[in-house]
Design a protein around this nucleic acid. Sequence first.
DNA 1: CTATTCTAATTAAACGTTTGTTTAATTTAA
DNA 2: TTAAATTAAACAAACGTTTAATTAGAATAG
Lengths: 213, 213
Amino acid sequence: MTPPDKIDKREQILQAAEQLFAEKGFDGTSVRDIAHEANVNLAMISYYFGSKEKLLESLIEQRFRISIGILEELSNDQSLSAWEKIDRLIDYYVERMVTNRRFHNIMNQEYNTDRSSEIKDLITRIKLQNLERIKGIIVDGQRQKLFRPVDIELTLGSIMGTIAQVTSLRKLYCNLLQIDNTDEASYSNVVIPRLKVHLKQLMRAHLDIKNEA
Amino acid sequence: MTPPDKIDKREQILQAAEQLFAEKGFDGTSVRDIAHEANVNLAMISYYFGSKEKLLESLIEQRFRISIGILEELSNDQSLSAWEKIDRLIDYYVERMVTNRRFHNIMNQEYNTDRSSEIKDLITRIKLQNLERIKGIIVDGQRQKLFRPVDIELTLGSIMGTIAQVTSLRKLYCNLLQIDNTDEASYSNVVIPRLKVHLKQLMRAHLDIKNEA
DNA sequence: CTATTCTAATTAAACGTTTGTTTAATTTAA
DNA sequence: TTAAATTAAACAAACGTTTAATTAGAATAG
């Protein structure tokens, strides 16, 4: 039989760390926990990453780099109307934040502590860059007289905040939406389409220039 | 001069814990940190609260009990229209979550770890109870043909999520809104009214039966 | 093809701190 | 005099990290 050890041990450690950090927090997770979960010797973590802190940085950097260009591409796509861009934006973020909610969880926890200012700055920089790009989409829609004047920054906050709220207070919303908390698939199958529909409807009402000022 | 020791030591410890838990997380804060910040001997924490964990429970319980009846009162107030109730609801939650954001921070962090299931259940129960009450307000508005049919649960998520997003990613939104991060007063003075206006506008567009379906 | 060499991977054990909690003695105030 | 409040000291356990020894696997030489 093929030994599971054949997967790169570095990646094993990263996966174990992602899971445990999300469940128990950074400080609540010991390197011994991670080593045990990854079926790896304790010392391998220092060996590969240098320290527990550096392990977290590696995790964040790697998981972030995955999808930075997507927003730029969407933003610059001339074939899409401003309305279509908003819809695709919602689809993208709902999909991304629901399926990667463990990772977003870690980032939020890390962002709300004053431990490593480097990590916080990294997150701020990337998020700011993304938000500026979305701002551009809404401004374009306003220039074309499709969207009415709104508080753009807080509109972004409503889109991201709605998704973040449902995903990060998962237990609460499973209760509220009457979803089985334990079944990951049925959770996604209910929450993802429902979030997409709600947010598109919300933004249509909020942004449409035909609605009351 | 009046010695600051005259304030109840229990309360000193609670305040120090609230601040440090919010800044550094539960596991990131040592009881020695708390004792030092509260100008209290290390052993006083076990003496008063029994343990670090019980200290957190005391903190959450005490801070929660403060405002449970308010929602019930608002919900049952016959002199207010459904629209007015929504507005007051927004005012209340914006005010509450921005000024007590440290406490909400702790709760979020605690909610997203699987340490104490008791605390998580406590939070779930209270929040669920509150959300059900707000649901009632929207359902009433729909019965009176003031509000159109919407996804009520996710509408609640949008209200709470917007506020939570802005307050919990504070550094990011200070950047985005061009507010001085260090000055607490100017932060509140900008963010609170702006959140209120935005959310009322958002809900007016979203809920008004006169807008497109 | 075997034997040797060398580097990277892996390990168990130990390091010095820091952790939350307890103890036993002392001070305070009624 | 008595009980509560407060203290410094000590406790064992857990922490992140390092060490020094061993194994594995490919490269090199005969």
